[in-house]
Structure formats: structure tokens, C-alpha cells
Design a binder for these strands. Structure first.
Lengths: 151, 151
DNA sequence: TCAGTATACGACCAATTATGTCCGTGTTCA
DNA sequence: TGAACACGGACATAATTGGTCGTATACTGA
């Protein structure tokens, strides 16, 4: 239904939380989970995934936890969603590079692939920093971004 | 995982199929389902939904079937998806107009709502006719469309 | 060195959603 | 009247998601 999974949501929230606290060396999964009231064990697994993908650094032991592996500005929402939910395609026929094994007729796929690219582009253009910086007064200059869609 | 349901896919395929055959008065669900190799009863239900939403006209009885209620150019992919899958939001916290009952902290929601609008805009800008016309030689002039995203 | 705190990871279960089928009813036309 | 169709509810099945549990491992500081 074209929506993010809760896992992806949680992941974005956690990264945003980390981005807002650059001074702290590391935050444990439990700290972040408590701050948002989400299941700690679930969040831990998500953060582990992000660590494996290189978006976070982890540190075990006391005062350990997770920290951003890169600057908040260089992590895109796209990367996060990709790391957590795997590659997404708007069309459901996505076996291999040349999908639709059964129906040779899925002629709708190609135009929608363009849409897919556009959406991916939008998500790539949003960084964790963008999310973290959003706590501003309404008058703050927004940054318009342009996305082109070619059918 | 940010993808369309098969139902939405089927719906778009069926509308495209109808749009490509403006001469025929009506096509039965079975005809269309056979053309694409998809379950006829399932497609029938989808077409019924589209009929209720006013995107199709139906005609019972022999030689009955479905036909576009409007011109292919005036039906957007957005309308179709909306009719089939209901309102979609990229964020999972979508209770009422002011979501996130449990977590007063879902600060990520608002920026993503802009993304949501952008995606909706992209889908609104694509008509069934765009899908149907796509069967062209590669040299055919594409129509670039611009979408603005403001974080 | 040892206790405490934390990540790492696989297995598992529960809940939800997506997908598809069945069956009965009503409508239209030849 | 009967065949071909739409309409719609109930149901069944499959897939995905969301969440838990248990255990192993790693690091820290006293």
C-alpha cells in the first residue's frame, strides 16, 4: 500500500535521534527505544542491520551503543530504507532484471519503473540531517528541491 | 516496503487495456483477466471497486462488461491506486488527522509527509493514457514533468 | 578477574495484510 | 427461459510484518 514499514520508520527515527545528539559518543538501543516508546529488542535488530550496512558504528560494553558512521548530511533516507527493507520496487513483478515471468504482458511495468526512480530520487535527496533540522520555527527558509519525472 | 499491491497493478493493467480499445463498447472481467493471465474473479472485484469509485461504467447481462467512465487522459494513476488500496501514507502512523497516539515523539512524520505529497503528485501526473501510449519506439518525444519537493 | 552492560544473531510466534476462491443474487439480452 | 454477465459477502490461504526469547559474544571498569 505504498507505505514504509514500522522498522524503516523506527530506523529513521533512531538515526534522527542520533543526529540530534552529535556530542554523545554513543547511545544504546535501549536509550533510543525508551525515548520513543518502541520495543527495545526490535530496535536493536534494526540498528544492527544499519550497522552491517555501514550506516552506524556499534560499540559493545558499558557506555557502548550506536553512533552514526557518517555525517548526518551524508546519510539519505533512501539508504536507510534500503538497508532495512531491502530493495523496493513499486511494481510487484520484480524477479531479476527482466521481470514478469508469467505474464509477458505486464506492459505497465516500464512506465511505473520511471515513477519508482522518481520516488527513489526524492528519498535520496533527503538526508538524516534534513530530518533532524526540521525542528524549526515556521518562518525558516525551506529548501525546495526539484525532481524530474520523464514518462 | 513501498510497493503497489497486485490489486493496484491489476487495476492499472485493466484500465490500460480498456484505454487501448476505445472502440469496444465493453469488456468483461473475464476477457481482461484472460488477456493478462490473472485470476478473473479477483479482477472482477477490483473492477467493481473502480466502478463504485466512478472510474468505470459497468453493464450487466450478456455482452456486458466494463468501460472507462471518463477519458483515459483524465484518469490518473493516483485515482486508481486510491480507489483500490485506499488512502496511502508513507508513514505508518496515520490515525486520524493528527497521528501517533502513543508516541508524542514521531517527529519524523512531518518531513515524510512532504515526501508523501510529492509521490502523490507524481502519481497524479500520470494518466491511464500515458500508460497506454507508452508502446512507442524509443525515439518518441518523452514528456518531462517537474515535481517540486520542499522539506 | 569478575560482574555488569551492551551488541549480535538465530529461532520462533503472533498479528496483520494480501491474495485468491466460492457461492448465491440480480440483471440483461437473445 | 437460459446463458452470460455484474455484484457482493464470506471464507480460505499465503505472505509479510511486528515482536519476543534465548543464547552467545564483546567490552568496560572496579
Amino acid at each position: 500500500m505504498l507505505k514504509l514499514t514500522k522498522k524503516a520508520d523506527y530506523g529513521l527515527m533512531a538515526l534522527k535521534y542520533l543526529a540530534e545528539r552529535p556530542e554523545t559518543a554513543a547511545l544504546s538501543a535501549k536509550d533510543i527505544a525508551d525515548a520513543y516508546g518502541i520495543p527495545a529488542q526490535l530496535l536493536a535488530k534494526i540498528l544492527q542491520q544499519l550497522t552491517r550496512k555501514g550506516l552506524l558504528k556499534s560499540h559493545a560494553g558499558m557506555n557502548g551503543g550506536y553512533a552514526l558512521a557518517k555525517s548526518a548530511g551524508s546519510i539519505s533516507a533512501y539508504e536507510v530504507i534500503l538497508a532495512i527493507d531491502g530493495p523496493f520496487f513499486i511494481t510487484s513483478c520484480t524477479k531479476g532484471a527482466n521481470g514478469c515471468e508469467l505474464t509477458p504482458s505486464c506492459t505497465i511495468k516500464e512506465p511505473l519503473a520511471r515513477v519508482n526512480e522518481t520516488i527513489a530520487g526524492v528519498l535520496k535527496s533527503i538526508s538524516i540531517q534534513d530530518l533532524a533540522e526540521h525542528e524549526h520555527q515556521p518562518g525558516h527558509a525551506p529548501e525546495p528541491k526539484l525532481v524530474t519525472l520523464t514518462i
